[in-house]
Amino acid sequence: MAHDLDEPTAEPGRGPLTTPLVVLTKVNKHFGALHVLQDIDLTVHRGEVVVVIGPSGSGKSTLCRAINRLETIDSGTITLDGVPLPAEGKALARLRADVGMVFQSFNLFAHKTVLENVMLGPVKAKGVKRAEAKERAVELLERVGVANQAAKLPAQLSGGQQQRVAIARALAMKPKVMLFDEPTSALDPEMINEVLDVMTDLAREGMTMVVVTHEMGFARRAAHRVVFMDAGQIVEEADPETFFTNPRSDRAKDFLSKILTH
């Protein structure tokens, strides 16, 4: 590769990105006959924002979900802050508490209010006192701009509002890294930006993020590094400027020509 990607350059206002936080080594996964992750090596540094793009079925969502073991892998290793992902059980639950996840379909707990959604993790998984958890939940809901919806059930909110609550719910656990699995793909166009704005702010504040998305504007604006996947492989990775203006692989060129025309 042309660039030394193990040591991405720091941007003004951000610390140097030198501490590996999430490390995937030779990760393989099959869905039946489909080899959905093929020898994936990827290191995400503390404070780094990695955007994963690629055509449908390229394995990018699976990669994202494997990092908190919502998908198991067949071989290879994934470590978080130096610790390999545990198998099922309490150790895995503790690890997941350190990894925030935002889903395409929001997945807010349908029977709980917005406020309870954000409080549940800290109270049940971390043993935080209810009063303290509530205070922090209100703070987070204010930060994502939906504090006035706190008493409502998720179904009463718009998609954009639900997704911002989902981000607050993940942040409530004070995660070391946030995973975003196509967070705007299920949203109406006019709601995409309100979610991307929250994510951009998070990135500016130095949150470590792995973002699977089709939002190229976000990738340009907030990413340190773009990872392009196709057919289960990482085909190319580069800083956003280089990737979008001067992609090296034919597959990346082909993909970009298809999505950047509109």
């Binding site: 997941r96 925030g100 807010l108 998984a125 409530a172 656990m173």
Partner: peptide, 12 residues
Amino acid sequence: GQAEAARAIGLT
């Protein structure tokens, strides 16, 4: 998705 979200925030 409900179970995945619950597991993702660290619930057993």
